[in-house]
Write a protein that binds this DNA or RNA. Structure first.
Length: 240
DNA sequence: AGCCTTTGACCAGCG
DNA sequence: TCGCTGGTCAAAGGC
């Protein structure tokens, strides 16, 4: 069931750029909430959790987990990014694995694509190109570099009986900054690392052998169901 | 009309 | 070599 989170919107708007800058080899990981990603149809609202647009291209029941894993691709034309998402029966995301890095800027929240035209192509380009400085501009809009929004909704913890590994999941938040820039930004904003971030374990693995510069970011969302209330807190003090 | 989700089948890697 | 598993493709249907 779709939990209607209040907002994807807010997510998006609040969730800013976890973008990475293009070539970086980036490593990024983002944790998303669990909103249903797509409101469907053409239009706005397809951006999900991390602000990018994703298209689901497959789903499969994997062995270790009792929940199916979904496969998504970034809809941006030349963006190689893919992500695997596992979610529990209530729609809560239990794990997200990103592969590769976006080579484009994050689409604007209310806009589908970066607008091909006229305008400014500089915007996104510049972000990619000179992230550092441009960020400032961008910042105006979105302010922080890359945080992830969290997951919320923890209803119960489920047990992953997997083969041996057990994990309770429900959701939690993970904040991870891998980009220097973001780091910097994060720091200046003092937002991450909420003191109450429960246990979130995130693993980041970069394989550089895989595909050129391919990266994989694994985000495991585990958490204590009991923290439900901390959710709000968890929302990271995002304050500008 | 366009794009997305769903779902079964196919393919490749590994033990 | 065979079987298993994970990942991707592609057709059909929906919004």
């Amino acid at each position: 069931m779709p939990i209607s989170r209040s907002e994807e919107a807010s997510d998006e708007s609040t969730l800013p750029e976890n973008a990475i800058h293009g070539d970086d080899i980036g490593q990024q990981l983002v944790l998303e909430g669990e909103q249903k990603e797509t409101s469907h149809a053409t239009g706005v609202g397809r951006t999900s959790e991390d602000g990018y647009n994703w298209r689901k291209y497959g789903q499969k029941q994997v062995k270790g987990s009792e929940f199916p894993r979904s496969y998504y691709k970034c809809t941006q034309p030349n963006c190689p990014v893919k992500k695997k998402v596992e979610r529990s029966h209530d729609g809560q995301i239990t794990e997200i694995i990103y592969k590769s890095a976006h080579n484009h800027a994050k689409p604007h929240p209310n806009r589908r694509a970066p607008a091909p035209a006229p305008a400014p192509s500089t915007d996104e380009m510049s972000e990619i190109a000179e992230a550092g400085e441009t960020y400032d501009k961008v910042d105006a809009d979105s302010v922080w570099g890359n945080i992830q929004s969290a997951v919320k909704d923890t209803k119960h913890s489920l047990e992953w009986k997997a083969d041996g590994q057990e994990r309770t999941s429900s959701a939690s938040v993970v904040t991870e900054l891998s980009d220097p820039i973001s780091m910097k930004r994060g720091r200046s904003l003092c937002m991450f690392e909420s003191e109450d971030t429960p246990e979130l374990s995130s693993t980041l693995a970069s394989h550089d052998g895989d595909e050129d510069g391919a990266t994989q970011a694994v985000v495991s969302v585990e958490d204590d169901a009991e923290d439900v209330e901390s959710e709000s807190k968890r929302r990271y003090h995002y304050s500008i």
